[in-house]
Amino acid sequence: MDAATDLRVMVPMDEKHQDGKVEVADGIVLTAEQKRRRRARSIAIALALVALVLLLYAVTVVKIGPEIFRRPL
C-alpha cells in the first residue's frame, strides 16, 4: 500500500436507532486530510459551475444583444 492508501481509515461506526438500540457496523470516518481534499474538490466544482453560468450568461447577451431588453414586461 502506498502512502495515499494509508489515509483511508476503516473503523466501526455506532448507529443509534430511535429505540435506543446501538448497532455497531463497519463504516468510514474521513481523516482530516480526506476532509480537506473533499472540501477542495467541492470548492473546485462550485467554481466550475459559477464559471459555466457566467459563460452562458455572457454568450446569451452577445448572441441576442440589445434584443434581450426588448420584451413585454
Partner: peptide, 12 residues
C-alpha cells in the same frame, strides 16, 4: 462508492 476519494483538485 463507499471508498473515500483521495483525489486532489490537481489530480483532476
Amino acid at each position: 462508492g463507499l471508498e473515500p476519494s483521495l483525489a486532489e483538485v490537481g489530480d483532476y
